[in-house]
């Protein structure tokens, strides 16, 4: 929506935030898929076939959900912003 300001300091801040958010998301992803796919009986160090397939699907699903929620959230906040401008318009005039 807004034209991004090319202020290098701010850009750096946004980039750092993005990296931090990504790595937080990744850590949660690993935690969630480990919890859901790896049984607590550690008889062997190797990943079993079933465990591997489960992990692959888990990652795909997690990222799908992440994307869906992101879209929904951005829709909601956009709607909210529109409501706000509607509310503010009469005041401006």
């Amino acid at each position: 929506m807004a034209v991004p300001q090319l202020d290098p300091a701010k850009l750096q801040l946004v980039q750092d935030l993005e990296i931090e958010m990504m790595s937080d998301m990744y850590n949660r992803l690993v935690g969630a898929c480990h919890r859901k796919c790896i049984p607590v009986k550690y008889h062997e160090p190797e990943l079993g076939k079933g465990e591997s397939v489960c992990l692959d699907r888990c990652v795909a699903k997690y990222l799908d959900v992440h994307e869906r929620i992101g879209k929904k959230l951005s829709n909601m906040s956009q709607g909210e912003a529109e409501d706000l401008t509607k509310m503010n318009l009469p005041e401006k005039k």
Binding site: V30, C33, H34, C37, I38, Y42, E44, P45, E46, L47, E51, S52, L55, D56
Partner: peptide, 8 residues
């Protein structure tokens, strides 16, 4: 196993 999970 955790490390392999992380890798995958």
């Amino acid at each position: 196993k955790y490390l392999r999970t992380n890798q995958r």
